[in-house]
Write a protein that binds this DNA or RNA. Sequence first.
DNA 1: ATAATTTTTTAATCTCACCTAAACAATAAC
DNA 2: GTTATTGTTTAGGTGAGATTAAAAAATTAT
Lengths: 226, 226
Amino acid sequence: MKNTVSISQENYLKVIFKLQNEHGIASNQSIAEKLEATPAAVTGMLRKLASLEWVEHTAYQGAVLTAKGQRIAISTIRKHRLWEVFLVDKLKFKWDAVHQWAEELEHIGDADFTERLDAFLGCPATDPHGDPIPDANGDWTGNERVIGADKLSREQIFTVRGVSNSASDFLQHLDALNIHLGKRFEVLDHFPFDGSWEWSDENGESLRISREVAGQLLVELSKKEK
Amino acid sequence: MKNTVSISQENYLKVIFKLQNEHGIASNQSIAEKLEATPAAVTGMLRKLASLEWVEHTAYQGAVLTAKGQRIAISTIRKHRLWEVFLVDKLKFKWDAVHQWAEELEHIGDADFTERLDAFLGCPATDPHGDPIPDANGDWTGNERVIGADKLSREQIFTVRGVSNSASDFLQHLDALNIHLGKRFEVLDHFPFDGSWEWSDENGESLRISREVAGQLLVELSKKEK
DNA sequence: ATAATTTTTTAATCTCACCTAAACAATAAC
DNA sequence: GTTATTGTTTAGGTGAGATTAAAAAATTAT
């Protein structure tokens, strides 16, 4: 008997997964916000997910995924991120335009389908925003060398590896600044007054970065250049 | 105000489109069969589609698409067939395994998305079963030179161009016979007793084809070879 | 500790798309 | 031209997933 997951259920599991990774537990309200539903709707769905043994729900506390629920959530995230790679690499969408379509595509396909998609895309390690793609077993290669760009200090050389915010306006702003994944910079200066930065790119062009931008950029430190 | 189409509605429009092309009008019952629903469900949905002005529904008669409804139906068919090409060409699915996934994928993407997919696939003219893919304007290049393989006569040389039945068991049988789109044959003989045929392929290998197979194969006549 | 506020749950309804069973048309048979 | 058959519609109901509004529990403030 094949336990089938509805689209709505998959969305709940995905959101609970992300929330519990941030806060240990997913509160009713935080789930409701992310899904743009009412708390009452969340209570009802949590009841159902609990009966399916995909979450453990403690009344008035919140929800935590079971091992089964986590498997489903990770698989959905894997599909989402693979489709994002498809949309950017193959269909030439800009990176700020892929989320809405990936939200729909992530519900399509079984394990075989997903592995074919993965192979076709060349088994990418990250999606277009730098987020790691879980492998077929649900394991992550969480890149521990990646830190927030607001944690840098002068003269450090680093490579942009991801964003912690994939909202369109932020991504478009990065495009305007000509900042993209894989680009290397050096920290020239930091200004505590407003938290802004001065960086230089590989051509020696310098640019100013606001606190807001640095705070949502994920970077990897490089060895000093000779 | 964006008139949004539900998945269920798209499926109805697609089925009505195909039925009305065969019989001029789509009867309640024929729609119900194709969608594996009850006639009562069809009545209800036709009412809604009529109120949206996508079909014209005459009680006890049947349904016919309006121009708007036809546009939606053709767009859905276009997406379905493009996704089938993707699944076979890119994800390496066999041609008998793509329908179920395409049924889900066909509901995803807007006009821009579809044109990107089309471009990525190289603007294919037909899907993996030989069915023509409507262009972005909804126009078909209905291949009038294609006829049923049961209409052939002795010594004619022809190329397999499509199938009029995409059921898995039929497609797998064709694979077993090593018959695929684009392959050329010559009619050696026809046996009225059971309606079967003897053909030869380009290597001179002869093979026997049942009435059932010939009746569902679409072929294009070639000029006689010198 | 009690009051005020926030969060969660319950209760009652809504919409969508489906179902079954019965009533009603249209078609075909005699 | 009644009668039988087939096809369609109505009527009433179900289940999933949502809603609003009110009740209950938890948290925070005084």
